[in-house]
Design a protein around this nucleic acid. Structure first.
Length: 261
DNA sequence: TGATATGTTTTACT
DNA sequence: CAGTAAAACATATC
């Protein structure tokens, strides 16, 4: 489920398996309603190599210095699959990059909410999207000014990609759960200490998910992720996990140990 | 069968 | 400008 940590794990697949190999071509799957690079854009990449990857928030990039970069957003259900020529292509492959030596990189996207595009400059792209600072590298002061001053719900602030890039529904719930803060508390009602704790906790949680390569089965048992179901027992306090809608998103939380400001 | 889903964008208000 | 709310996007799964 792609948020920042899942996007980073996906980026790493490219970094680990697809760099410095000449791109020979592309294969398209069933592509209606999926944003993909045009034939002319794909042609610009043929005979070139990816030499580096980047990630900002949930946006992944692969390219080389000076050249156009391939940008990928995984949307709701996107993923990458690395395989070699002769192996079965995965289901729902929308765009497959063919490298020399038979290496394949498939962009899978069952629900077609993802996007792949060619961008001339990564920084310009990020600026053009209006994305806020990356959630894993933002500093304490920048976090406090981006989030702490918001008048709306803290959960909505964390999810706002213009304020902070990378946090999605799952990890915003996990962060608030660990901090003991109700998702619908107004961000500006949190004291300085709580905002600082939120910053540290958010980075700690997503850092662990990145470290575990986004394999949820390796995450600690007392995390909300394993019990994110209406009516489940809260593994931290014995309360009951409950859902409510905050800012149009479903917010799972424990009313017993998550409190208002 | 119907409800729900990890995300983004757009539009229309307040 | 800041924020809220709803709808739309396409499809798989519970």
């Amino acid at each position: 489920m792609p948020e920042l940590p899942e996007s980073d794990a996906a980026r790493r697949k490219i970094a680990d398996h697809c760099l410095n190999r000449t791109i020979e071509g592309f294969t398209l799957g069933e592509v209606s309603h999926v944003e993909l690079p045009s034939e002319a854009e794909r042609e610009q990449l043929v005979e070139t190599q990816f030499s580096a990857t980047r990630r900002h928030g949930k946006y992944i990039f692969a390219g080389r210095k000076g050249g156009p970069w391939l940008h990928v957003h995984l949307g709701m259900s996107g993923s990458f699959r690395i395989y070699d020529e002769g192996e079965d292509a995965p289901d729902y492959a929308r765009l497959t990059v063919e490298f020399e030596g038979g290496r394949r990189l498939a962009f899978r996207d069952p629900r077609k909410f993802g996007a792949v595009a060619l961008v001339p400059d990564v920084d310009d792209f990020i600026a053009g999207k209006g994305l806020g600072p990356d959630a894993m590298t933002i500093g304490d002061n920048a976090f406090a000014s981006a989030i702490g001053a918001t008048r709306g719900a803290i959960k909505s602030a964390l999810l706002n990609q213009r304020k902070l890039a990378g946090v999605g529904n799952l990890w915003s719930d996990e962060t608030l759960y660990r901090c003991g803060i109700m998702p619908d508390v107004r961000a500006c009602d949190l004291d300085t200490g709580a905002v600082g704790q939120l910053h540290r906790t958010m980075q700690d949680i997503m850092g662990v998910v990145i470290e575990k390569n986004a394999d949820y089965s390796q995450l600690p048992r007392d995390w909300l992720i394993h019990n994110r179901t209406d009516g489940a027992d809260c593994p931290r306090c014995g309360g009951t996990i409950t859902k409510k809608t905050v800012g149009g998103r479903t917010a799972y939380h424990c009313p017993d140990h998550q409190e208002g400001a």
